[in-house]
Design a protein around this nucleic acid. Structure first.
Lengths: 155, 155
DNA sequence: TAAAGTCGACAACGTGGTTGTCGAAACAGT
DNA sequence: ACTGTTTCGACAACCACGTTGTCGACTTTA
Protein backbone atom coordinates (compact mmCIF):
# COMPACT_ATOMS: atom_id res chain seq x y z
CA UNK A 1 0.00 0.00 0.00
CA UNK A 2 2.78 2.41 -0.83
CA UNK A 3 2.68 5.36 -3.19
CA UNK A 4 2.62 3.22 -6.30
CA UNK A 5 -0.16 0.79 -5.71
CA UNK A 6 -0.55 -1.70 -8.50
CA UNK A 7 -3.48 -0.93 -10.78
CA UNK A 8 -5.91 -3.38 -9.19
CA UNK A 9 -6.84 -5.13 -12.40
CA UNK A 10 -3.48 -6.81 -12.76
CA UNK A 11 -3.84 -9.60 -10.21
CA UNK A 12 -7.15 -10.98 -11.53
CA UNK A 13 -5.92 -10.64 -15.09
CA UNK A 14 -2.76 -12.59 -14.29
CA UNK A 15 -4.71 -15.37 -12.61
CA UNK A 16 -7.05 -15.61 -15.54
CA UNK A 17 -4.25 -15.49 -18.07
CA UNK A 18 -2.45 -18.29 -16.23
CA UNK A 19 -5.54 -20.45 -16.12
CA UNK A 20 -6.46 -19.68 -19.68
CA UNK A 21 -2.97 -20.44 -20.91
CA UNK A 22 -3.03 -23.89 -19.30
CA UNK A 23 -6.52 -24.66 -20.62
CA UNK A 24 -5.66 -23.56 -24.14
CA UNK A 25 -2.52 -25.66 -24.21
CA UNK A 26 -4.40 -28.61 -22.77
CA UNK A 27 -6.99 -28.56 -25.52
CA UNK A 28 -4.47 -28.01 -28.27
CA UNK A 29 -2.58 -31.07 -27.07
CA UNK A 30 -5.76 -33.05 -26.46
CA UNK A 31 -6.79 -32.40 -30.06
CA UNK A 32 -3.61 -34.06 -31.31
CA UNK A 33 -4.30 -37.09 -29.14
CA UNK A 34 -7.65 -38.06 -30.57
CA UNK A 35 -9.89 -35.66 -28.64
CA UNK A 36 -10.41 -32.64 -30.88
CA UNK A 37 -14.01 -32.12 -29.78
CA UNK A 38 -13.48 -31.86 -26.05
CA UNK A 39 -14.36 -28.38 -24.82
CA UNK A 40 -13.36 -26.91 -21.48
CA UNK A 41 -16.84 -27.38 -20.05
CA UNK A 42 -16.79 -31.06 -20.98
CA UNK A 43 -13.68 -31.71 -18.96
CA UNK A 44 -15.26 -30.19 -15.88
CA UNK A 45 -18.44 -32.14 -16.45
CA UNK A 46 -16.60 -35.44 -16.85
CA UNK A 47 -14.65 -34.71 -13.68
CA UNK A 48 -17.97 -34.18 -11.95
CA UNK A 49 -19.23 -37.51 -13.25
CA UNK A 50 -16.21 -39.39 -11.97
CA UNK A 51 -15.37 -43.03 -12.46
CA UNK A 52 -18.38 -44.11 -10.44
CA UNK A 53 -20.88 -42.25 -12.61
CA UNK A 54 -23.60 -39.91 -11.41
CA UNK A 55 -27.12 -38.83 -12.25
CA UNK A 56 -27.73 -35.61 -14.16
CA UNK A 57 -29.13 -33.96 -11.05
CA UNK A 58 -26.06 -34.91 -9.08
CA UNK A 59 -23.76 -33.57 -11.79
CA UNK A 60 -25.65 -30.30 -11.67
CA UNK A 61 -25.18 -30.12 -7.94
CA UNK A 62 -21.46 -30.83 -8.15
CA UNK A 63 -21.01 -28.22 -10.85
CA UNK A 64 -23.21 -25.65 -9.19
CA UNK A 65 -25.64 -25.46 -12.10
CA UNK A 66 -29.25 -26.52 -12.58
CA UNK A 67 -30.10 -30.13 -13.34
CA UNK A 68 -31.47 -28.97 -16.70
CA UNK A 69 -28.14 -27.40 -17.66
CA UNK A 70 -26.33 -30.55 -16.58
CA UNK A 71 -28.74 -32.63 -18.63
CA UNK A 72 -27.95 -30.61 -21.73
CA UNK A 73 -24.21 -31.02 -21.25
CA UNK A 74 -24.74 -34.75 -20.82
CA UNK A 75 -26.62 -34.74 -24.14
CA UNK A 76 -23.62 -33.24 -25.90
CA UNK A 77 -21.20 -35.57 -24.13
CA UNK A 78 -23.32 -38.56 -25.10
CA UNK A 79 -23.54 -37.43 -28.72
CA UNK A 80 -19.73 -37.39 -28.84
CA UNK A 81 -19.45 -40.80 -27.21
CA UNK A 82 -17.84 -39.68 -23.97
CA UNK A 83 -20.64 -40.83 -21.68
CA UNK A 84 -23.62 -43.16 -21.76
CA UNK A 85 -26.94 -43.18 -19.93
CA UNK A 86 -27.82 -46.35 -18.04
CA UNK A 87 -31.15 -47.08 -16.40
CA UNK A 88 -30.90 -47.48 -12.66
CA UNK A 89 -32.46 -50.86 -11.75
CA UNK A 90 -33.19 -49.71 -8.22
CA UNK A 91 -34.93 -46.44 -9.12
CA UNK A 92 -36.88 -46.11 -12.33
CA UNK A 93 -36.69 -42.32 -12.25
CA UNK A 94 -32.92 -42.19 -12.33
CA UNK A 95 -30.53 -42.60 -15.20
CA UNK A 96 -26.92 -43.12 -14.30
CA UNK A 97 -24.43 -41.26 -16.48
CA UNK A 98 -21.27 -43.27 -16.94
CA UNK A 99 -18.00 -42.42 -18.64
CA UNK A 100 -17.26 -44.56 -21.67
CA UNK A 101 -13.71 -45.84 -22.22
CA UNK A 102 -13.28 -42.88 -24.54
CA UNK A 103 -14.39 -40.53 -21.78
CA UNK A 104 -11.97 -42.10 -19.33
CA UNK A 105 -9.19 -41.84 -21.85
CA UNK A 106 -9.76 -38.11 -22.26
CA UNK A 107 -9.52 -37.65 -18.50
CA UNK A 108 -6.36 -39.72 -18.19
CA UNK A 109 -4.73 -37.83 -21.04
CA UNK A 110 -5.77 -34.51 -19.54
CA UNK A 111 -4.14 -35.33 -16.23
CA UNK A 112 -1.00 -36.38 -18.04
CA UNK A 113 -0.90 -33.19 -20.10
CA UNK A 114 -1.51 -31.00 -17.07
CA UNK A 115 1.39 -32.67 -15.29
CA UNK A 116 3.57 -31.92 -18.29
CA UNK A 117 2.45 -28.28 -18.36
CA UNK A 118 3.14 -27.93 -14.67
CA UNK A 119 6.60 -29.33 -15.29
CA UNK A 120 7.15 -26.55 -17.81
CA UNK A 121 6.30 -24.00 -15.13
CA UNK A 122 8.79 -25.71 -12.85
CA UNK A 123 11.44 -25.36 -15.54
CA UNK A 124 10.70 -21.65 -15.84
CA UNK A 125 10.24 -20.80 -12.17
CA UNK A 126 11.80 -23.52 -10.11
CA UNK A 127 10.00 -26.16 -8.11
CA UNK A 128 9.75 -24.12 -4.95
CA UNK A 129 8.21 -21.07 -6.60
CA UNK A 130 5.54 -23.21 -8.25
CA UNK A 131 4.89 -24.98 -4.98
CA UNK A 132 4.65 -21.66 -3.19
CA UNK A 133 2.26 -20.33 -5.82
CA UNK A 134 0.00 -23.32 -5.25
CA UNK A 135 0.30 -23.01 -1.51
CA UNK A 136 -0.55 -19.30 -1.60
CA UNK A 137 -3.60 -19.90 -3.73
CA UNK A 138 -4.75 -22.73 -1.46
CA UNK A 139 -4.56 -20.30 1.43
CA UNK A 140 -6.64 -17.53 -0.11
CA UNK A 141 -9.11 -19.83 -1.84
CA UNK A 142 -10.41 -22.52 0.44
CA UNK A 143 -12.27 -25.42 -1.23
CA UNK A 144 -10.80 -25.19 -4.69
CA UNK A 145 -11.79 -28.76 -5.50
CA UNK A 146 -15.08 -30.17 -6.62
CA UNK A 147 -17.81 -28.99 -6.46
CA UNK A 148 -15.99 -26.47 -8.54
CA UNK A 149 -18.77 -24.24 -9.75
CA UNK A 150 -16.96 -23.34 -12.90
CA UNK A 151 -19.32 -23.40 -15.86
CA UNK A 152 -21.55 -20.50 -16.55
CA UNK A 153 -19.75 -17.99 -14.42
CA UNK A 154 -19.95 -15.67 -17.39
CA UNK A 155 -23.65 -15.93 -17.87
CA UNK B 1 8.45 -35.34 -10.34
CA UNK B 2 8.80 -37.67 -7.44
CA UNK B 3 6.62 -40.63 -6.58
CA UNK B 4 3.73 -38.44 -5.54
CA UNK B 5 3.22 -36.13 -8.47
CA UNK B 6 0.44 -33.67 -7.90
CA UNK B 7 -2.76 -34.64 -9.66
CA UNK B 8 -2.36 -32.30 -12.61
CA UNK B 9 -5.76 -30.74 -12.29
CA UNK B 10 -4.93 -28.85 -9.14
CA UNK B 11 -2.87 -26.01 -10.55
CA UNK B 12 -5.42 -24.89 -13.17
CA UNK B 13 -8.23 -25.29 -10.66
CA UNK B 14 -6.42 -23.12 -8.12
CA UNK B 15 -5.77 -20.41 -10.69
CA UNK B 16 -9.37 -20.43 -11.74
CA UNK B 17 -10.65 -20.46 -8.19
CA UNK B 18 -8.44 -17.51 -7.35
CA UNK B 19 -9.63 -15.54 -10.33
CA UNK B 20 -13.22 -16.50 -9.78
CA UNK B 21 -13.08 -15.59 -6.13
CA UNK B 22 -11.84 -12.08 -6.93
CA UNK B 23 -14.42 -11.58 -9.67
CA UNK B 24 -17.29 -12.77 -7.49
CA UNK B 25 -16.29 -10.51 -4.64
CA UNK B 26 -15.86 -7.61 -7.04
CA UNK B 27 -19.38 -7.94 -8.37
CA UNK B 28 -20.93 -8.45 -4.98
CA UNK B 29 -19.29 -5.25 -3.80
CA UNK B 30 -20.06 -3.41 -7.05
CA UNK B 31 -23.72 -4.27 -6.57
CA UNK B 32 -23.76 -2.52 -3.22
CA UNK B 33 -22.21 0.57 -4.80
CA UNK B 34 -24.88 1.27 -7.37
CA UNK B 35 -23.79 -1.15 -10.11
CA UNK B 36 -25.87 -4.30 -9.62
CA UNK B 37 -26.19 -4.98 -13.35
CA UNK B 38 -22.52 -5.04 -14.28
CA UNK B 39 -21.53 -8.49 -15.46
CA UNK B 40 -17.98 -9.77 -15.77
CA UNK B 41 -18.02 -9.44 -19.54
CA UNK B 42 -19.10 -5.80 -19.27
CA UNK B 43 -16.08 -4.90 -17.19
CA UNK B 44 -13.75 -6.37 -19.77
CA UNK B 45 -15.60 -4.62 -22.57
CA UNK B 46 -15.46 -1.26 -20.82
CA UNK B 47 -11.75 -1.74 -20.22
CA UNK B 48 -11.40 -2.36 -23.93
CA UNK B 49 -13.29 0.85 -24.69
CA UNK B 50 -11.06 2.94 -22.47
CA UNK B 51 -11.39 6.61 -21.62
CA UNK B 52 -10.77 7.61 -25.22
CA UNK B 53 -13.60 5.52 -26.61
CA UNK B 54 -13.40 3.09 -29.52
CA UNK B 55 -15.47 1.78 -32.40
CA UNK B 56 -17.26 -1.54 -32.12
CA UNK B 57 -14.84 -3.12 -34.56
CA UNK B 58 -11.89 -1.93 -32.52
CA UNK B 59 -13.42 -3.26 -29.32
CA UNK B 60 -13.85 -6.61 -30.99
CA UNK B 61 -10.21 -6.60 -32.01
CA UNK B 62 -9.02 -5.71 -28.52
CA UNK B 63 -11.16 -8.41 -26.98
CA UNK B 64 -10.32 -11.02 -29.59
CA UNK B 65 -13.94 -11.44 -30.70
CA UNK B 66 -15.84 -10.61 -33.85
CA UNK B 67 -17.11 -7.10 -34.44
CA UNK B 68 -20.64 -8.48 -34.34
CA UNK B 69 -20.14 -9.91 -30.87
CA UNK B 70 -18.65 -6.63 -29.72
CA UNK B 71 -21.60 -4.78 -31.21
CA UNK B 72 -24.03 -6.90 -29.20
CA UNK B 73 -22.17 -6.25 -25.99
CA UNK B 74 -22.20 -2.54 -26.75
CA UNK B 75 -25.97 -2.78 -27.22
CA UNK B 76 -26.35 -4.20 -23.72
CA UNK B 77 -23.94 -1.67 -22.24
CA UNK B 78 -25.82 1.16 -23.93
CA UNK B 79 -29.18 -0.14 -22.70
CA UNK B 80 -27.82 0.02 -19.15
CA UNK B 81 -26.44 3.51 -19.62
CA UNK B 82 -22.76 2.61 -19.37
CA UNK B 83 -21.78 3.73 -22.86
CA UNK B 84 -23.17 5.88 -25.64
CA UNK B 85 -22.75 5.80 -29.41
CA UNK B 86 -21.56 9.01 -31.05
CA UNK B 87 -21.37 9.64 -34.78
CA UNK B 88 -17.86 10.23 -36.01
CA UNK B 89 -17.84 13.55 -37.91
CA UNK B 90 -14.78 12.50 -39.91
CA UNK B 91 -16.08 9.13 -41.04
CA UNK B 92 -19.79 8.59 -41.56
CA UNK B 93 -19.40 4.81 -41.32
CA UNK B 94 -18.01 4.86 -37.80
CA UNK B 95 -19.74 5.26 -34.52
CA UNK B 96 -17.56 5.99 -31.56
CA UNK B 97 -18.48 4.18 -28.37
CA UNK B 98 -17.81 6.34 -25.34
CA UNK B 99 -18.08 5.58 -21.64
CA UNK B 100 -20.72 7.63 -19.87
CA UNK B 101 -19.95 9.07 -16.42
CA UNK B 102 -21.74 6.03 -15.04
CA UNK B 103 -19.47 3.75 -17.04
CA UNK B 104 -16.38 5.56 -15.83
CA UNK B 105 -17.62 5.33 -12.28
CA UNK B 106 -17.99 1.57 -12.51
CA UNK B 107 -14.42 1.29 -13.73
CA UNK B 108 -13.05 3.54 -11.00
CA UNK B 109 -14.94 1.63 -8.35
CA UNK B 110 -13.75 -1.68 -9.76
CA UNK B 111 -10.13 -0.63 -9.54
CA UNK B 112 -10.66 0.53 -5.98
CA UNK B 113 -12.35 -2.73 -5.00
CA UNK B 114 -9.65 -4.81 -6.64
CA UNK B 115 -7.01 -2.91 -4.70
CA UNK B 116 -8.89 -3.67 -1.52
CA UNK B 117 -9.15 -7.36 -2.38
CA UNK B 118 -5.47 -7.51 -3.13
CA UNK B 119 -4.81 -5.92 0.26
CA UNK B 120 -6.76 -8.78 1.82
CA UNK B 121 -4.47 -11.25 0.11
CA UNK B 122 -1.52 -9.32 1.46
CA UNK B 123 -2.98 -9.62 4.95
CA UNK B 124 -3.31 -13.36 4.54
CA UNK B 125 -0.05 -14.09 2.75
CA UNK B 126 2.28 -11.20 3.31
CA UNK B 127 3.28 -8.60 0.76
CA UNK B 128 6.24 -10.52 -0.58
CA UNK B 129 4.31 -13.72 -1.27
CA UNK B 130 1.65 -11.81 -3.19
CA UNK B 131 4.32 -9.93 -5.10
CA UNK B 132 6.07 -13.19 -5.89
CA UNK B 133 2.83 -14.75 -7.03
CA UNK B 134 2.32 -11.90 -9.47
CA UNK B 135 5.90 -12.04 -10.58
CA UNK B 136 5.72 -15.79 -11.19
CA UNK B 137 2.57 -15.44 -13.23
CA UNK B 138 4.05 -12.62 -15.27
CA UNK B 139 6.94 -14.91 -16.08
CA UNK B 140 4.90 -17.85 -17.32
CA UNK B 141 2.24 -15.76 -19.05
CA UNK B 142 3.68 -13.07 -21.21
CA UNK B 143 1.26 -10.36 -22.41
CA UNK B 144 -1.37 -10.62 -19.74
CA UNK B 145 -2.71 -7.14 -20.51
CA UNK B 146 -5.12 -5.95 -23.14
CA UNK B 147 -5.93 -7.19 -25.69
CA UNK B 148 -6.96 -9.76 -23.16
CA UNK B 149 -8.98 -12.20 -25.20
CA UNK B 150 -11.15 -13.15 -22.30
CA UNK B 151 -14.81 -13.37 -23.30
CA UNK B 152 -16.10 -16.45 -24.96
CA UNK B 153 -13.22 -18.68 -24.08
CA UNK B 154 -15.79 -21.18 -23.02
CA UNK B 155 -17.66 -21.24 -26.28
C1' DT C 1 -52.78 -44.81 1.36
C1' DA C 2 -52.14 -40.04 0.78
C1' DA C 3 -48.84 -36.30 0.61
C1' DA C 4 -44.40 -34.67 -0.40
C1' DG C 5 -40.09 -34.87 -2.69
C1' DT C 6 -37.00 -36.16 -6.61
C1' DC C 7 -36.02 -37.68 -11.28
C1' DG C 8 -35.55 -36.57 -16.14
C1' DA C 9 -37.67 -34.28 -19.93
C1' DC C 10 -39.60 -30.32 -22.43
C1' DA C 11 -40.35 -25.42 -23.51
C1' DA C 12 -39.21 -20.63 -23.59
C1' DC C 13 -35.86 -17.47 -22.83
C1' DG C 14 -31.24 -14.66 -21.96
C1' DT C 15 -26.37 -13.99 -22.85
C1' DG C 16 -22.24 -14.32 -25.28
C1' DG C 17 -20.30 -16.15 -29.07
C1' DT C 18 -20.04 -17.52 -34.47
C1' DT C 19 -20.50 -16.96 -39.88
C1' DG C 20 -22.54 -14.84 -43.81
C1' DT C 21 -24.56 -10.94 -46.07
C1' DC C 22 -25.51 -6.29 -47.01
C1' DG C 23 -25.49 -1.10 -48.18
C1' DA C 24 -23.00 2.89 -47.23
C1' DA C 25 -18.83 5.27 -46.90
C1' DA C 26 -13.76 5.73 -47.41
C1' DC C 27 -9.73 4.88 -49.89
C1' DA C 28 -6.29 3.56 -53.65
C1' DG C 29 -4.88 3.17 -58.37
C1' DT C 30 -5.45 4.20 -63.01
C1' DA D 1 -12.95 11.32 -62.10
C1' DC D 2 -14.07 6.60 -62.13
C1' DT D 3 -13.49 1.97 -60.35
C1' DG D 4 -12.33 -1.67 -57.40
C1' DT D 5 -11.16 -2.83 -52.58
C1' DT D 6 -11.62 -2.33 -47.85
C1' DT D 7 -13.94 -1.06 -43.71
C1' DC D 8 -17.87 0.36 -41.08
C1' DG D 9 -22.16 -1.05 -38.65
C1' DA D 10 -26.34 -3.60 -38.99
C1' DC D 11 -29.13 -7.73 -39.66
C1' DA D 12 -30.12 -12.73 -39.70
C1' DA D 13 -29.47 -17.40 -38.53
C1' DC D 14 -27.23 -20.32 -35.71
C1' DC D 15 -24.67 -22.66 -31.55
C1' DA D 16 -23.17 -23.30 -26.62
C1' DC D 17 -24.37 -22.82 -22.11
C1' DG D 18 -26.96 -21.14 -18.75
C1' DT D 19 -31.77 -19.88 -16.51
C1' DT D 20 -37.08 -20.71 -14.72
C1' DG D 21 -41.20 -23.03 -14.97
C1' DT D 22 -43.87 -27.10 -15.79
C1' DC D 23 -44.91 -31.83 -16.16
C1' DG D 24 -45.64 -36.99 -15.56
C1' DA D 25 -43.55 -40.75 -13.49
C1' DC D 26 -41.63 -42.71 -9.59
C1' DT D 27 -39.97 -43.00 -4.53
C1' DT D 28 -40.13 -41.89 0.02
C1' DT D 29 -42.23 -40.47 4.15
C1' DA D 30 -45.80 -39.79 7.44
Amino acid sequence: MADNDPPGFELPLLLFAGFRSLIDQLHAELATRGHPDVRPAYGFAMQAIGVLGATASEIGRRLGVSKQAAGKTVDRLAALGYVERVDDPHDARRKLIRLTPRGIDSLVQSAEIFDRLRARWVEALGADRVAQLESSLRTVVPNAGFPVDVPGWFG
